[in-house]
């Protein structure tokens, strides 16, 4: 039995213990060996480990099977399951959600411009027009309509415009609207959700680096 134990390798790294799973053997032999290893070496105490499936793609069921086995035979907790591979669909989703979609037109009343990822509008968004993005919204023109950033629920997204005079700004599930009295718009501003007040606030565009330093870190929201 012990000669078969080469499918699972453990390594200590800066990020804790990483357990590498062989990607050439069958999934069943992998699971079997995992089971045996866990039975032999009863780890004491709760330790967090990271699993790495290398070049093997694990589907939902297989992930569950591995997690269940570990739960059953040990006190270990699985922090995450890494892999070198993802499916095309996942890759496409990440690509879609992390790229900037540029459009060069005026978004007019009644029109809805909806994109995955960041939206860059070269032109105005007129009153009654709507821009929706799962990421950030940048308007190189006057924003006078509605902008909805972080449509899938990401409150870290911002709405920035060369000239800010919107009907409404929505970020994730937060909504802020223009006051009932007449207001002048203001140049070069951006809107963000203030974590402490939980409200949408406007700020001069030059402060964006301070308030959202990780705005362009695409993998923060992509994965």
């Amino acid at each position: 039995m012990s000669e078969s134990s080469h499918f699972i390798t453990m390594k200590g790294t800066n990020n804790g213990i990483v357990v590498y799973l062989d990607d050439q053997c069958s999934f069943n032999s992998l699971l079997k060996e995992l089971e045996e290893k866990l039975q032999i070496n009863q780890a004491s105490g709760k330790t967090e480990i990271t699993l790495h499936s290398q070049n093997r793609y694990l589907n939902e069921d297989q992930r569950h099977a591995i997690e269940n086995t570990i739960d059953q035979y040990s006190e270990l907790t699985v922090k995450s399951i890494d892999s070198y591979v993802i499916t095309r669909d996942e890759a496409y989703d990440i690509y879609e959600n992390t790229t900037v979609k540029t459009v060069m037109k005026t978004i007019r009343s009644g029109q809805i411009h909806e994109v995955k990822g960041d939206a860059l509008v070269i032109g105005d968004v007129n009153p009654g027009g709507t821009v929706i993005a799962t990421g950030n919204i940048f308007v190189l023109g006057k924003l006078r309509g509605i902008a909805h950033a972080g449509f899938d629920g990401d409150e870290g997204c911002v709405v920035a415009a060369s000239y800010m005079h919107p009907n409404q700004i929505r970020i994730a599930s937060k909504i802020s609207r223009a006051p009932d009295y007449d207001v002048e718009g203001s140049p070069r501003e951006f809107a963000f959700v203030n974590q402490s007040t939980e409200q949408i606030e406007l700020e001069q565009l030059q402060h964006i680096q301070k308030i959202r330093p990780k705005l362009l870190d695409v993998f923060e929201r992509g994965l």
Binding site: K105, R108, S109, G110, Q111, N126, P127, G128, G129
Partner: peptide, 12 residues
């Protein structure tokens, strides 16, 4: 003006 904007969008 709002309706004109809408119409221009449709004409485009």
């Amino acid at each position: 003006v709002r309706d004109a904007d809408r119409i221009i969008g449709l004409l485009e």
